[in-house]
Nucleic acid binder design. Structure first.
Lengths: 247, 247
DNA sequence: AGGCTTGCGTAACATCATGTAACAAAAGGC
DNA sequence: GCCTTTTGTTACATGATGTTACGCAAGCCT
């Protein structure tokens, strides 16, 4: 893929240039925009791979702009907002944003999100794995979702608990994409592998779960190669995954 | 099934319209309601498949409304609440809510729950097997409902007790569908295989029954392959079932 | 480099759901 | 009625999952 072209939309001049600079320093082509007009100008003028859109623009509501843009063309959008309250997040998704980041954010996290969305846009995959797919291969391993069996490269069966299996599925559906603990927890909920789980936030269940899965699928759990830690962010599954539809 | 019709009950206008919109965008027919009266109006006016009910309405308590509705007719209800404290969750279930979601919630999670509840409500009607069908084959086994005989893949007869047989029938009628203990217990009642069964809830009769059936039809009851446990949910029968009408 | 702060890994414990043996209560058959 | 079979209950063992606490490592500042 060519160098990704991003638009940074924010009404605060300082934030705007800061983000733009930061993204440029990290290998992206970023353009600052202040108004919807500027956005449209860029959209007409050439390829735009992703828009970073502040929710709280002076005159207009970012969510509405996002909704409007979405209707017109299919540009990935990440909403940025000072309000981390989740009902705003909901509005964002509702409107079709690809992701949502709360200000102030960790720069690394921003990069991770941007990469993830670009990556996803490229393959149009979502967080949750597709149903029709049920056989996964990765790094010599083999996972059959139908029988719920995991086979090591050496060919012997490894028993995974339900949660471990669920985690593996989430990872397999998002190779090379850094996932935060919250995203993982949500995905586990959505796949229905965790019913009575409270909305998360307190404990470190995900960390422990990751540790347990590592113990079963990593050659040396002490220096993981498949399920790596992204310090300050979460975890990434670093393996190429091939899938086979089963029906 | 036709497009599901949902009621969104919340006293906050914004939340109400937001959820309604969101659900509509995802293929549901959703109607905003503010008061119990509005709910009743819809209930009388036409089919309602599911009610999303906020627990903290201004004047009334959602839990109480839920209890009242439940007494009158059998509409599935999902309680929504800002209070994630577990005792509220418990109250919800006590009162007969089908599920419970804490605000703020992940939109995907909401959809998942809604679908799950609808799915459940939808199939409870078909829990009982059809009469005309009386020969079942599954994983090499053969069950003749007329003669009440079960034959193993190796060809010898296995004697099942009445309850075991009833359980098997329920499972055969619902392959690949996870059933809760309550659903199973109810289905057993309906098939007339259990008359004086107490109102349920206390003991673990289903667990023991499942164990006994496993002992007869599983190769290795310790690691069941046909009658599997869904932790936190119930049991699933994981085998393809073919049936033959017997006229 | 050294010290401080933060995030992560993980052992040890707490909790909860399930499996099941052993017993008790019912239901039938004679 | 007495015995046999079936079904339900209880109690305990087991295994899965969540929580907590502590130590280590990575980054950061000086």
């Amino acid at each position: 893929m060519a160098i990704p072209r991003l638009l940074v939309v924010d009404d605060d001049a300082e934030t705007r240039s800061m983000m733009t600079q930061f993204l440029q320093q990290n290998g992206f082509m970023a353009f600052p925009c202040e108004t919807e007009d500027t956005i449209r100008h860029h959209l007409k003028g050439g390829r735009v791979d992703l828009i970073l859109l502040d929710v709280m623009l002076a005159d207009e509501n970012g969510v509405e702009i996002c909704a409007r843009l979405r209707k017109e063309q299919d540009v990935p959008v990440i909403l940025v907002s000072a309000l981390s309250a989740d009902h705003h997040r909901m509005k964002g998704y509702e409107v079709g944003a690809d992701d949502y980041i709360a200000k102030p954010f960790n720069p690394e996290l921003l990069l991770a999100r941007v990469r993830a969305v670009l990556h996803r846009a490229n393959r149009s995959a979502s967080l949750v794995y597709r149903r029709s797919v049920s056989v996964f291969r990765f790094a010599g391993w083999h996972y059959d979702a139908k029988r719920d069996e995991v086979t090591s490269p050496q060919g012997y069966q490894v028993a995974l608990s339900r949660k471990e299996t669920a985690l593996l599925k989430v990872l397999l559906a998002n190779p090379h994409i850094p996932l935060t603990r919250d995203e993982i927890a949500n995905a586990l909920d959505v796949t229905g592998e965790a019913q009575g789980t409270p909305p998360e936030g307190s404990g470190r269940a995900i960390d422990v779960l990751v540790g347990r899965l590592r113990g079963k699928i990593e050659t040396d759990p002490k220096s993981p190669e498949l399920l790596r830690t992204e310090r300050g962010i979460g975890y990434v599954f670093t393996a190429d995954v091939t899938t086979e539809d089963s029906a």
